[in-house]
């Protein structure tokens, strides 16, 4: 057995009185695709955001690749530089794309390598153009984000995250803000990434996609992992009543 790419142990997060994550433990193998599903407020997005420290946990431990952080109450947060290094190893794709509107598409994709890795511009541009070609947007390199459709924006956002050559990609409801006819082009890019062996955690409401692409599915509710297992088992034959109730809202079981 290989060493897991991602290891989370005893992760806790609360906002004031509201406990959002209770003692989350999970492991993700290299190249595995894990889908996080669950009702809104279940903590799945918070868990994802903890994984690249956009939300700082109150307790527990996170390891991604070679970088690990312990979170204890009263202990000082990791220094900004250490946080930045940790984050640069995980690519994050947001629901609302969050492209930089003052930069061209190519500028968006080059920003990470140039500003975080101090890579020479020519080299970053080569990487940027290759990744834009990969997501099918080579011809949009010089356009500004406001000229793109939602689906195109999200594909640029994926290319931007990939430009840092992260070991892990995190998708936070990457298709939820898209018009229905634009969802498939983004899912297509994600499917290709999964096939190439990228380790991915996907927070999604696309149950059919999760069933098809994910190796494992984790169902969360009220800040705990209720059920997890191979994607088809969890989605087709959920063991827990809560999972069954949640999945009954989707028409995906075949």
């Amino acid at each position: 057995m290989s060493i897991p790419k991602i290891e989370v142990a005893g992760l806790r997060k609360q906002f004031g009185e509201l406990v959002v994550l209770r003692d989350i433990t999970l492991k993700v193998d290299p190249g595995a695709v894990v889908a996080l599903i669950g009702p809104s407020g279940s903590g799945k997005s918070t868990l994802l955001r903890c994984l690249n420290l956009l939300v700082v946990p109150n307790g527990g431990r996170i390891r991604i690749g070679d970088d690990a952080f312990d979170f204890e109450t009263g202990k000082a947060l990791p220094k900004p530089k250490a946080q930045a290094k940790f984050r640069s190893n995980t690519g994050m794709v947001f629901q609302h794309f969050n492209l930089f509107p003052h930069m061209t598409v190519l500028g968006n994709v080059m920003e990470g390598p140039v500003s975080a890795k101090k890579m020479p511009k020519a080299q970053a541009e080569a990487i940027g153009r290759r990744l834009l070609a990969k997501v099918g947007l080579a011809d949009k390199a010089d356009a500004y984000p406001d000229r793109l459709s939602g689906g195109q924006k999200q594909r640029v956002a994926i290319a931007r995250a990939l430009a840092m050559e992260p070991e892990v990609m995190l998708f936070d409801e990457a298709t939820s803000a898209l018009d229905p006819e634009l969802v498939s082009e983004v899912l297509g890019v994600m499917r290709d990434l999964a096939a190439e062996g990228m380790t991915m955690i996907i927070v999604t409401h696309e149950i059919a996609f999760a069933r098809e692409v994910a190796d494992r599915v984790i169902f969360m509710r009220d800040g705990v992992i209720v059920e997890e297992g191979p994607a088809r088992d969890v989605i087709d034959r959920p063991q827990q009543e809560a999972t069954r109730a949640f999945l009954s809202h989707f028409h995906t079981r075949g």
Binding site: L54, P80, A84, F94, A116
Partner: peptide, 13 residues
């Protein structure tokens, strides 16, 4: 979201 996207890339604050 702009700050988050920048931080997520690995840029310092």
């Amino acid at each position: 979201g702009q700050t988050e996207a920048g931080l997520a890339l690995g840029l310092t604050p």
